[in-house]
């Protein structure tokens, strides 16, 4: 039996379009569901007071601090490593065995599940190096986790800088490093920053890698050796232990808003970057 191409074409549009629509609807549902249930619980006092009674009442102030400081530490550590790696890969070396190994390692690192990072961070930073459950252990673990993302996005951004800029710079007597500093990095910057923003988004939402390395203390930390609790961990504990649905929703909404802000500004940056290019 042969069906007329016109009908298979229409059928295809219906099925493929339906799949796309479903995906978008799921996304919209998740965001609206959380915001609808959670937004009423968010207030200035919710954001600025300490939780009481294990989080049953009160706000989420200490977790805000944890949520800011852990990703920040991770970024401070991973950004220079990531950018230097990508500069080395794209500007200082030809494709050879070493670069293939580095790329393969980066890809593997990107695919490792966060629970493994949690285990590693626990046994290496918390136990072996003796940092304990702390901001330092959590930040270092997150840094290792986001490193591949930063390497990849930076490398893409650097490769997008036209080859002719490099030629011109070299022909004017620049060294490799001068070319990197004066021409390549400034032009790749928006792309690099986009990668950093996306990494921050991932670090903010991370739970498994953080809970076993930074712990879940609700006290306000006074040094990098203190334990801290991020919003994501707090939300997990509230939801899983059934402590308070209302506070769980409000925390989830805050978390979603934070992640959306970070990601949308990343896309905005990228968009502006592309617009400037063309």
């Amino acid at each position: 039996m042969r069906i007329h191409p016109r009908y298979t074409q229409r059928g295809a549009i219906a099925v493929l379009g339906g799949a796309t629509l479903l995906t978008l609807l799921i996304l919209a549902f998740i965001i609206f569901f959380i915001l609808e249930k959670g937004l009423p619980g968010i207030s200035l006092s919710f954001l600025t007071t300490n939780p009481t009674d294990m989080g049953r009442a009160g706000g989420i102030f200490p977790t805000l601090i944890g949520t800011i400081i852990l990703p920040l530490l991770a970024i401070i550590i991973a950004t220079p490593l990531g950018i230097f790696t990508s500069v080395y890969l794209s500007e200082y070396t030809k494709e050879n065995k070493a670069t293939r190994i580095i790329r393969f390692g980066t890809d593997c690192l990107a695919g490792i599940p966060s629970i493994i990072f949690g285990l590693f961070g626990y046994i290496f930073f918390v136990v072996t190096l003796g940092f304990g459950w702390s901001i330092l252990s959590g930040g270092l673990t997150l840094a290792v986790m986001i490193l591949p993302t930063i390497i990849r996005t930076s490398e893409e951004a650097i490769r997008a800088v036209p080859k002719s800029y490099r030629e011109v710079s070299f022909s004017l007597g620049a060294t490799s490093w001068q070319t990197v500093k004066k021409v390549i990095l400034p032009n790749a910057l928006p792309g690099i920053v986009t990668g950093i923003m996306l990494s921050i988004g991932r670090a903010i939402g991370e739970t498994a890698a953080v809970i076993f390395t930074a712990g879940s203390s609700l006290r306000i930390p006074s040094s990098v050796f203190d334990s801290t609790r991020t919003m994501a961990v707090h939300f997990y504990i509230l939801a899983r232990e059934g402590i308070s649905a209302e506070n769980a929703y409000a925390t989830a909404a805050t978390l979603i808003i934070a992640v959306l802000i970070v990601n949308l500004s990343a896309y905005w940056l990228m968009h502006r970057f592309i617009a400037k290019r063309s």
């Binding site: 002719s164 030629e167 032009n187």
Partner: peptide
Amino acid sequence: VGMVFAMPVPLP
């Protein structure tokens, strides 16, 4: 030994 390329490439 300076060089001018076929396509004009002003740096940004």
